[in-house]
Amino acid sequence: MASNEEILAGLAEIVNEETGLAPEAVELEKSFTDDLDIDSISMMTIVVNAEEKFDVKIPDEEVKNLKTVGDAVNFIAGAQA
């Protein structure tokens, strides 16, 4: 079980790997599309990598609800429980 801080750090690593964005730029209130400029294909790659890293399932229909980094952290934390 990862803490919310660990999930955020792990997500930041995945986002950096996919997009080259500095990990510090990946903050809870940031929107994936509007702030981080992540397109739908990159988002799917990030989701699949997060599934593997945190050993959770993120259903495709759930992805559209993950608007901010915080949404993703909360979903992953909940899915781990």
């Binding site: 799917m44 790659t45 699949v48």
Partner: peptide
């Protein structure tokens, strides 16, 4: 080896 979920969207 890993299934369809891991096939890269790109």
């Amino acid at each position: 080896e890993k299934g369809p979920r891991r096939v890269l969207p790109m």
